[in-house]
């Protein structure tokens, strides 16, 4: 979540005063925003040294962990909200992490690049993998080890028994609720265990 506007749209989904766990929290920008504007507390989880340092510098609690090793450190339903923003596409075990998110948090919020956004579809129709603002990498050097669509996530959530509380797309800092699978470059889902 580098885009400030996107970040604010997601912050608005977090109830004020929540205890938050941010998986793949980057430099801790969102946690600092939630702390300063919504009285939230909590922790970030990060693997990258530079991000861990940035979090400490911001005074944001951060735990250096590899998410692929799971969330054993965190108790069941120990957070009001677990965020997994722009992280899922980097994980080998996406489904397990989604289940873990629902185990640890009363509410989960995920965001990821929507591969079905129409410019991506045009790229693929033309026979090439898309290179866009949200998916800025070439196919051979991308850190995104998996790509999925807005519609794909709905299927996965249903499969794992998650109840979708809210879902929308984001495009150029605006919420997209009409045909998000086609018209939004970023997919956002808020869910609980039903």
């Amino acid at each position: 979540m580098s885009d400030r506007k996107d970040m604010e749209l997601i912050a608005a989904l977090v109830p004020p005063g929540s205890r938050v766990l941010d998986l793949g929290c980057g430099s801790g920008e969102l946690l600092a925003l939630l702390r300063d504007t919504r009285r939230c507390s909590g922790y970030g989880v990060e693997i990258a040294d530079a991000n861990v340092l940035a979090c400490v510098q911001r005074g944001v609690n951060v735990i250096q962990l590899n998410l692929e090793e799971g969330l054993a450190m965190f108790g069941d339903q120990s957070f009001d909200v677990v965020l997994q923003l722009d992280t899922m596409q980097h994980l080998r075990n996406t489904e397990r992490m989604l289940r873990e998110t629902a185990r640890v948090g009363r509410v989960g919020i995920v965001s990821f690049p929507n591969f079905a956004h129409w410019p991506n579809r045009l790229h693929v129709l033309a026979g090439r993998m898309p290179v866009t603002k949200v998916l800025p990498y070439q196919w051979y050097d991308t850190p995104n080890i998996r790509v999925g669509t807005y519609a794909d996530f709905e299927v996965l959530a249903r499969r794992d028994g998650l109840r979708i509380l809210d879902a929308f797309g984001i495009e150029r800092g605006e919420v997209v609720r009409r045909w998000p699978n086609l018209l939004a470059s970023v997919a956002v889902f808020k869910f609980d265990r039903g």
């Binding site: 040294d49 861990v52 609690n61 735990i63 962990l65 450190m73 108790g75």
Partner: peptide
């Protein structure tokens, strides 16, 4: 990490760096 977990369980402010 055992210590971190115990602190998390108590909702204390904690940061943890694992230096390579």
């Amino acid at each position: 990490r055992e210590i971190v977990k115990a602190l998390l369980d108590n909702r204390l402010d904690v940061s943890y760096a694992e230096i390579e």
